[in-house]
């Protein structure tokens, strides 16, 4: 193999995969190579959250995450939230509250909200704001996003009760 390259193996959206990467590539570039564009680079500095993906169940900024670090990890991208053609309650809540406009930031917010609700079933508005403080939305749908988080929390509660 050429210098500065490496083969990595990891689980991507539930399936084991293997790919060759350049050492200087980041995780967004790896997902793109698999045809996944839900994580996308925007600020390139860890500040906007457009490039969010989950590594071993934790949200990370793909733009600051070396591709090599994915070796052996369980990687989940936003595309994996849809199950059997059904959106997740968080995705549904975003739609119902109109919590996006251009949609470029939306996959990142959706993944972060999934994480937030996994940690805390009924977050306060203050907790929501703190948790999402590292995600930027230039369309500024923040008020609607806060409502979507609250609605998603309700939906999750309702489906847990059912």
């Amino acid at each position: 193999m050429a210098a500065g390259r490496k083969t990595i193996r990891f689980t991507l959206n539930g399936k084991p995969v293997e790919t060759e990467i350049a050492n200087h590539h980041n995780a967004v570039e790896v997902l793109e190579a698999f045809g996944l564009f839900g994580a996308r680079e925007s600020c390139a500095q860890g500040l906007c959250g457009c490039c969010t993906l989950l590594v071993d169940g934790k949200a990370v900024s793909g733009c600051l995450y070396l591709a090599a670090f994915l070796d052996g990890a369980v990687v989940t991208s936003v595309e994996h939230l849809e199950r059997d053609g059904a959106l997740s309650p968080v995705q549904e809540a975003f739609i119902e509250e109109g919590a996006f406009q251009c949609g470029f930031c939306t996959p990142g917010f959706v993944l972060m909200v999934e994480q937030l609700l996994d940690r805390c079933a009924a977050p306060s508005e203050d907790e929501i704001r703190h948790y999402l403080s590292g995600n930027l939305c230039r369309c500024a749908t923040y008020p609607q996003i806060i409502q979507a988080v609250q609605r998603a929390a309700e939906k999750r509660k309702a489906s847990a009760a059912a």
Binding site: F94, I95, G98, F100, T106, P107
Partner: peptide
């Protein structure tokens, strides 16, 4: 009528098309 955006599903699931991609 406040119907959801036509492209809502693509946008929340990361499949909406942008020239960026």
């Amino acid at each position: 009528r406040s119907i959801p955006r036509r492209e809502a599903r693509e946008k929340v699931s990361g499949r909406a098309e942008y020239i960026h991609h």
